[in-house]
């Protein structure tokens, strides 16, 4: 059982001693049931930290954003940030460390084990409650979730409420941490790994194409999936070339001949290209936090595109992202035994 008091106490000591610049955690949200990310800078704020299955967000993102923000700030506060990290968040941190995007001294990791549980999928919750608003959500043992509404409490099976990624998660505990809260629970009883992926991958080719066409056609190119991804930290993204500066001296020729890899128009083919490029850029880096899928306003199963490469990385190259900060990345390494029979 994760004792929230321990996390609060630790956050308070860290802030009181001035060891960290801020603590990133979860607090009760002001709208709805879901917890929201909290950015604590004062010791007395530590009491507002919470931990329950509504702590969905991947806080590694805020570490990346803060790093980006700090680059443009004058202050040279080099103290680390403390981050409350679930299993998937900690794996995101491992990948960021592996890529030398952050340094281990820049972060204090308060690892929290999901203890065989996980976080809920807000869409599943709304569906299960048939539109009623939940007030409290808490784990009740490993296989049930207690949901409180205005009209009383109900207990629902965990497999109906947990996010797909949590149902499939094999390691629901932090990989890397400074202090660990809760026990590392091995062995889980929900769905096998890649269950959601397999339902799509097993369809025949034509159906698969129709399935993805329908999704890509609906994409409105809001780039929410990119904005929420802790791995999408490039300063310039291939889909919006900010480096091409139009000045009064830019000739029509230069404007016409600039390379546009991906057009902005939300055409199915261009959107497909955007999603595939993003999937390729996340190959061997995506730690399956499924935030991209959660934030998608038109419910495109973005996570599956990352999953398919994660499965290939595992099956063909025995590569599991987010396990070891010392490991070379998937794309920048090779082995003699890599598959070769697909080449003519």
């Amino acid at each position: 059982m994760v004792a929230i008091e321990d996390i609060r106490a630790r956050a308070r000591t860290l802030l009181e001693s001035g060891e960290v610049r801020a603590v990133l955690g979860y607090q009760r949200g002001s709208a709805g049931t879901l917890a929201e990310p909290a950015f604590l800078t004062e010791p007395q704020q530590a009491a507002s930290l919470v931990w329950d299955p509504t702590c969905i967000h991947n806080l590694a993102l805020y570490l990346v954003n803060e790093k980006k923000r700090q680059r443009t700030q004058r202050s040279n506060d080099k103290r680390p940030l403390a981050v409350v990290a679930k299993g998937c968040d900690s794996r995101a941190l491992v990948v960021l460390l592996q890529e030398n995007h952050i340094d281990r001294s820049e972060v204090v990791i308060l690892g929290v084990s999901c203890e065989g549980g996980g976080v809920i999928d807000p869409r599943k919750l709304t569906r299960a409650l048939a539109g009623r608003a939940a007030t409290t959500v808490a784990m009740d043992g490993a296989d049930a979730i207690r949901v409180g509404t205005a009209s009383g409490e109900t207990t629902l099976p965990a497999s109906e409420l947990l996010a797909d990624r949590c149902l499939e998660c094999a390691r629901a505990y932090p990989e890397l941490y400074d202090t660990l809260y809760g026990d590392k629970a091995e062995g889980r009883s929900y769905s096998p790994r890649f269950a959601a992926l397999n339902t799509v991958a097993e369809k025949p080719l034509d159906e698969r194409r129709a399935y993805w066409n329908a999704h890509f056609e609906r994409c409105i190119r809001c780039y929410a999936c990119r904005a929420v991804c802790p791995m999408c930290y490039c300063d310039e993204c291939v889909v919006d070339s900010t480096e091409f500066v139009v000045t009064p001296n830019t000739s029509a020729d230069e404007k016409a001949n600039r390379i546009r890899w991906i057009q902005r128009s939300p055409d199915a083919s261009e959107s497909a290209m955007y999603h595939l490029v993003r999937a390729m850029h996340l190959a061997g880096r995506c730690i399956d936090c499924a935030e991209c899928e959660r934030v998608c306003p038109v419910n495109i199963p973005v996570r599956l595109l990352n999953n398919v490469l994660e499965r290939e990385a595992l099956e063909a190259f025995e590569y599991v992202p987010g396990t070891d900060p010392g490991l070379p990345s998937l794309i920048s390494s090779f082995r003699d035994g890599d598959p070769n029979d697909f080449v003519r």
Binding site: V200, E207, R208, R209, A279, L305, E312
Partner: peptide, 13 residues
């Protein structure tokens, strides 16, 4: 290899 698997997944022959 990865590009190929990805293309096949979204339904490219």
């Amino acid at each position: 290899y990865l590009v190929q698997k990805l293309l096949q997944f979204i339904g490219v022959e």
